[in-house]
Design a protein around this nucleic acid. Structure first.
Lengths: 198, 198
DNA sequence: TCAGTTCTTGACTGGTCCGTCCATAACGCT
DNA sequence: AGCGTTATGGACGGACCAGTCAAGAACTGA
């Protein structure tokens, strides 16, 4: 009936994410995104509404995909729960160190720039953080059931601590800490988690 | 000989910091700062050179004052080293929770927005982080000498971990974590630090 | 009091950027 | 093929903003 879209929405969102991620919200121009995708500005506005709406869409997608990725890394049986936790913590350190451009995480960057004045961004960031904490808590509880972590500590508190360490690794990576430092932090954090008495 | 300045440089820097802190670099207009201080734009440019130069100045001052404040909190004799460490960790959690506007720390916010594209900001942030780590390490070493923390763990690594936790507390606070959560993280972090065997 | 220097102010410039608009293109249905 | 509908793309409007400039103000030393 009507003229079909020539572009793939997914690709446009990916390109937009790339731009917002490296430049930040304020410093990214809609024209940058238009050029990056080959679209005209009219199409961009027609499809997504405007700069803020586009960012919200990108931010939502990003938060969702982060939570989903962590969920895949942390869900499983009790026997491997500690191995999954350990792998996840090291993976965050490695990924942060590998991010030589020091862009950090879009979740952190977007929240830092906009959360104070944009309730939508703030709410979405809060929800993502809570989801991550819940995933960690459930994995840590599994570790406790399997005897890999002392059962006398509240798993929620340990999860909050681990989450803080992970976000801290991000932050230090952005400030230029070396891969060695970040890996050391990951190792030390895992090492200080309370082990059950034998 | 010449006409003296009517304004206090310190007050202008404070006002500028306030604006950059809540709005971010890109979203703050030089005119905002001019209005906040009652100065004309010409005076601002005459005294500080430009927007970027002014931000660098503000950022430098902020980093310096943070390091200095932490230094005051953490330096002292070995007997009180653990008490100082503990007080500092709780203080960061409390300060983050008290920051209801969720602006976080200008060091983190400025680095998040600009470090990728501004080598001066990146370098200054890195230097500040290293200074904070050194302060923590020296206090933790004092704790070890005094028998409050197990001496068989490298103080540098513990310091890096504590620093990551502190930065993580900041990040979670910005994402909307409750005061209770933040205080719990502080408590748990202190609790998991290795104690010497009796 | 006058000269010389530095500070102040706000209007102005040149450029940037968000968002709109419109002429045109592509498609399916009848 | 003709028509209605939706997508495209680029030019345009209007607002905003960093930085400049020129005219005048404030001060000191002679």
């Amino acid at each position: 009936m009507a003229r079909p879209r020539k572009f793939d929405e997914r690709q446009v969102l990916d390109a937009a994410r790339e731009r917002f991620w490296s430049g930040g919200y304020a410093a990214t121009r809609m024209e940058d995104i238009a050029e990056a995708t080959g679209l005209g500005k009219g199409s961009l506005y027609g499809a997504f509404g405007g700069k803020q709406a586009l960012f919200h869409r990108v931010f939502d997608d990003y938060c969702g995909s982060v939570v989903e990725a962590v969920s895949r890394q942390l869900c499983g049986n009790d026997e491997d729960a500690y191995a999954r936790l350990s792998a996840h913590v090291y993976a965050v350190a490695a990924a942060t160190a590998a991010d030589t451009a020091h862009r950090g995480c879009l979740l952190a960057k977007g929240a830092a720039e906009l959360a104070e004045h944009d309730e939508t961004v703030a709410g979405r960031a809060r929800a993502a953080i809570e989801a991550l904490q819940a995933l960690l808590e459930s994995d840590i509880a599994a570790c406790q059931r399997n005897g890999d972590i002392a059962a006398d500590t509240d798993p929620g508190r340990l999860a909050a601590l681990v989450l803080a360490v992970l976000r801290g690794i991000e932050a230090l990576g952005k400030a230029g800490a070396s891969e060695e430092t970040l890996t050391d932090i990951a190792r030390t954090a895992l090492a200080v988690l309370p082990r059950p008495a034998h």
